[in-house]
Nucleic acid binder design. Structure first.
Lengths: 146, 146
DNA sequence: ATTTATGCAAATCGTTTGCAAACCT
DNA sequence: AGGTTTGCAAACGATTTGCATAAAT
């Protein structure tokens, strides 16, 4: 099921001369299974044989390889998710202001198109070379509303 | 010039039974003058008579009052800016992946409209009560491109 | 007078790092 | 063997907090 993901991650790591060790595989597995950004704490909980230090170190390696990246919510915890180049799915985040949880969601194509065209204008308008974008909607999640 | 800002902040603080002390005023002044999100370090540098602890405490108070809020970039530093309810200006951020700097920019009205309409659908589609949004464009700033 | 804000120094806590043992090739 | 990754424990650093003084009401 997450076979293509592993292949994509392996390719990324290889390009940076890094091995796809079991610890790294566990992290990728956990992130793929979650389908939402996870905190370092959630990750070590999901990978019981992985000490924190190794988890952090491997997240850094996976980050340099472009397979994983940090997601910023509103609380103090860093969250991690698989890069779109690995999942093949472009998405955005719903951030709960009450509990800090982060969920994925897909924006309508029309909106994505508007953002792309905006990004194109930033170079000439502001001298800013746009590479990617983040769109987060902040509010209250279903669990906290109940 | 930033008179309306001070009035708005004062109103916010008053609503939460907090005083508009000189330290808080200095922070607001610095944020208003900057016109972009500032790190805690930049703020204490801009307010030479303010110790870090007071700066952080006052930023927390201003945050609870809804006059200031945190902005997350890509580096490890928290950044702060005046809330839109105080400045009256809705805007988004250009985040430099190279140096971490954050600049403000205004998105086209059409894009904002698309986002608003998306936010409206999230309640029924996902049970998520949307309150606000963040749109960040990541890339390389003019200074880092040179 | 009493409550609230300040300033210093010490504590907190997510995250990072040094180093020796275990691993892969 | 030679270089890399791991695991433990100690270090790091941005942010927070305790407590005594100063300010505001």
């Amino acid at each position: 099921m997450s076979d293509q993901i592993h292949t994509a991650v392996a390719r990324r790591l290889d390009a940076v001369d890094q091995r796809y060790t079991s610890g790294r595989r566990q992290l990728v597995e956990a992130l793929a299974k979650a389908g939402r950004p996870l905190t370092a704490g959630e990750l070590v909980a999901a990978c019981p044989s992985l000490p924190q230090s190794t988890a952090y170190r491997n997240l850094a390696v996976l980050g340099q390889a472009g397979a994983v990246h940090r997601v910023s919510g509103t609380d103090e915890f860093a969250r991690y998710e698989l890069d779109e180049s690995v999942t093949g799915r472009h998405h955005h985040h719903l951030v709960c202001l009450s509990c800090g949880a982060v969920e994925d969601f897909a924006a309508p194509a029309g909106l994505e198109h508007s953002v792309s065209s905006l990004m194109g204008t930033l170079g000439s308008d502001r001298g800013f070379h746009a590479e990617s974008h983040r769109l987060d909607v902040l509010g209250t999640c279903a669990a906290c509303r109940s």
